[in-house]
């Protein structure tokens, strides 16, 4: 089951591909098959830049199943520069570097492994933007 699911999510997970409505221009992430703003079914793929800012952030000490090995981890709402706010873990960051308003950029990291026989899911996390 997880194999088909992860295959279906590749574009969003690995390239931050969302949708833009050709009618009202609304940008959505992840991809939609029907615009939530105007109802149009004429949407095209829209790859997001992967740059954004931390909208809010928490450090997680008790995680849902599958994420325990990464505890403690930073879970953040990241406001992408195109508008959508997405849920993502932060990586390559220490506590003092993770603050609301910090600029972050997308990187691809291992998210979860579904048992010994299931797929290992790689997808986006966010890391502080390098100065200069």
């Amino acid at each position: 089951m997880h194999f088909a699911r992860s295959w279906r999510q590749q574009a969003a997970n690995l390239r931050l591909v969302g949708s833009q409505c050709t009618s009202c221009k609304k940008i959505s992430f992840p991809e939609r098959i029907r615009c939530t703003q105007c109802g149009s079914t004429e949407l095209k793929d829209h790859r997001l830049s992967g740059r954004g800012t931390i909208f809010t952030v928490t450090r997680v000490f008790e995680a849902p199943r599958g994420f325990g090995s990464q505890v403690p981890y930073f879970a953040a709402l990241v406001e992408l520069e195109e508008g959508p706010i997405i849920c993502a873990m932060l990586t390559d960051v220490d506590q003092k570097d993770a603050s609301v308003g910090d600029k972050v950029t997308m990187v691809t990291r291992r998210i979860i492994a579904h048992g010994d026989d299931g797929p290992i899911i790689y997808a986006y996390k966010f890391t502080p933007e390098l100065e200069g």
């Binding site: 699911r5 999510q9 969003a12 992840p30 809010t56 952030v57 928490t58 997680v60 008790e62 995680a63 849902p64 599958g66 994420f67 990464q70 981890y73 879970a75 953040a76 709402l77 997405i86 849920c87 993502a88 873990m89 998210i111 979860i112 899911i121 997808a123």
Partner: peptide, 17 residues
């Protein structure tokens, strides 16, 4: 289930944020 739970976000994490 895909974009929140699938990335380590549960009800407790959401309330912490």
């Amino acid at each position: 289930a895909t974009r929140e739970a699938g990335f380590g976000f549960g009800p407790a994490v959401a309330s912490g944020l």
